[in-house]
Write a protein that binds this DNA or RNA. Sequence first.
DNA 1: TGCTCATGGAGAAACGTATCTGCGACGAAC
DNA 2: GTTCGTCGCAGATACGTTTCTCCATGAGCA
Lengths: 372, 372
Amino acid sequence: MTAAAANQSGRRSTHARRMERAGIRDVAAAAGVSITTVSDALNGKGRLPDETRSKVREVAERLGYRPSAAARTLRTGRSGLIGLTVTTYGQEPFTFTEFAYFAEMARAATSAALTRGYALVVLPAASRHDVWGNVALDGTVVIDPADHDPMVAELYRQGLPVVSDGKPGNCPVTAWVDNDHTSAVLEILEHLAEAGARRIGLLTGTSTDTYTRLSTEAYLGWCHRVGQQPVYEAYPAHDPCAGAVAADRLLARPDRPDAVYGLFDPNGTDLLAAARRYGLRVPEDLLLVCCSESDVYATTEPPITTLSLKPQRIGTTVVNLLIDAIEGVGAFTGAGDTPEGQLMPTELIVRRSSQRRPTRTTVSAPRVPGED
Amino acid sequence: MTAAAANQSGRRSTHARRMERAGIRDVAAAAGVSITTVSDALNGKGRLPDETRSKVREVAERLGYRPSAAARTLRTGRSGLIGLTVTTYGQEPFTFTEFAYFAEMARAATSAALTRGYALVVLPAASRHDVWGNVALDGTVVIDPADHDPMVAELYRQGLPVVSDGKPGNCPVTAWVDNDHTSAVLEILEHLAEAGARRIGLLTGTSTDTYTRLSTEAYLGWCHRVGQQPVYEAYPAHDPCAGAVAADRLLARPDRPDAVYGLFDPNGTDLLAAARRYGLRVPEDLLLVCCSESDVYATTEPPITTLSLKPQRIGTTVVNLLIDAIEGVGAFTGAGDTPEGQLMPTELIVRRSSQRRPTRTTVSAPRVPGED
DNA sequence: TGCTCATGGAGAAACGTATCTGCGACGAAC
DNA sequence: GTTCGTCGCAGATACGTTTCTCCATGAGCA
């Protein structure tokens, strides 16, 4: 019965051997109210006179009370955490920021999450330790999901909202955001044609993600339409060495193009180096455009025209869509209705490498995305 | 009594209105064992025959059971989450990846955390919503803490392990890691002097963080020792525009230096531009070195010698120290003993901008840090 | 006086896990 | 035949919140 008596109340104060963090009970005891009152006062709920509220707040402050995030999460089912999944290529433990796109996108996403009170945790698509199981997530952003991505399907099955950057191939997501890659490629090809290109080549990738696929298809379709024989080389995009080789191969062909568009960030410098090797002047003998977020291309010799996918806007939009889904009033039912898609404009930054006549650097007006 | 009977067991299966995620109870019921057995079987604890273990695992797999991270965290006190705090300059919501150092450091830290089964969440030093209170962290990495950083003190008071990147000015941390900035600056100054510099200038910052302070002090001490009049300009490092102005000012001085070391990433291009404006040839009239992680400087004209702080190694080390403290056997007592410090070597990447005679690009051997 | 209604707050039940304690059974040793 | 140790597991408790339910009090009103 002594045990029962000791257990009845004040357990913490009598039993405590070392000072631990103050809990909501300690605050309640110190303020002479119940824990219900403390919770309500601190969270702005319930019906309490202002004096009680302020008194409880003061006591909590004095005790240095911090509510346990774990307990709150357990009770409410909300952790305030969202995941950002990046695809890991091959063995590399972690290769985001390898391309400036990922870095910018992640930065914007983190920032957008924070302004809405969420924190963002970057997770690899797969890792040895099952970090996924150990983190309570309210939802996930997936960058460039694979065609039948099993991880996305699993997340969705668990009832977690999933928003993807990149139109999902064939997996269920709550919503997705992507650039209008088709329009972007067509804009570039027209731009090059206007600058006098007769045979436009493409440096593309071998993987099956939406970006690569749509861009390549747009190129092939355009070639077919204008009656040009396609001239392209594909390589595994995650291998920087392969990119340089592919660029060289493209310019070594007998049917050498007089203009090239490179789909990936390092293509610009690779193509420039290859052009030098073959004695080709840019832009006189070869017009160059590549897709990149890096501002290196503003200072190369010559400066290279780039297509920006505006990763900041994408990251912000993706996160806001996700949080909308998380907080949405039952809008997310888990039923198999087609997810909301949104196309974001790209921006072509025209520099000397794609202009036969030296003109001022201009920026094209962003396209208004169609409804599709 | 009907309520009591209904409550006694099988509550979930009778009461459940909509299919939710399977809990540990469901697994126990389906496997015909107790929840203790399920927990033990899945976590590899307790004394169980292998057949029971495998059976429980199979049932759990079949039901798609995922343990609740929130409940586990609440129970065990471990969330598997560590924070990475970056200092936010001024109004900007989030400016990491502004300098390549942060991006690289964050990437390495994320990767290192993941390989030890932890996830990393990037948090701003301050934000409107109190994200800190909403996230259960096992510990925190702080980049460049201010002199009497209140946030660090608060975290430490809560009993959270804190490891800082940058020797802490005057706040309690569990451990810290930093470059040997003093040695690095001396190495650069000697390198420039050997290349023929007679008057070496410094482009530095106005803030009070350890990096700026130590580097500037090392420069001033060296000047004093060799009897050179210090020639330097300081500007707020977070303002990119101010950097260009300061670079210009430095080269416009009557006592114009014939060599300059810039402490911040953009200083190289800024100084190069300023040199062009004044008709100074690099390296003939002006030797240039700057601290940067960007590989842009390998392709500028001329390529610029840079000091790399090796942020990958720093990020990895910091995270591993933090996790050691988290998992350490009571080594972290919270007593006021002096924290463990660790100095990491830097790397000087010598390029044309700091060499009077054109030689091959070489890399100096990293210094072995002293014990201090 | 008796009734309703709003106010201010207390009690207790979850949330889902890990773990401490204990209990029956069984084999072995005395 | 009793005791003892071990094995294999079940019960119960605690982690620290949020929130649902409900009670006491006093005012307003017929």
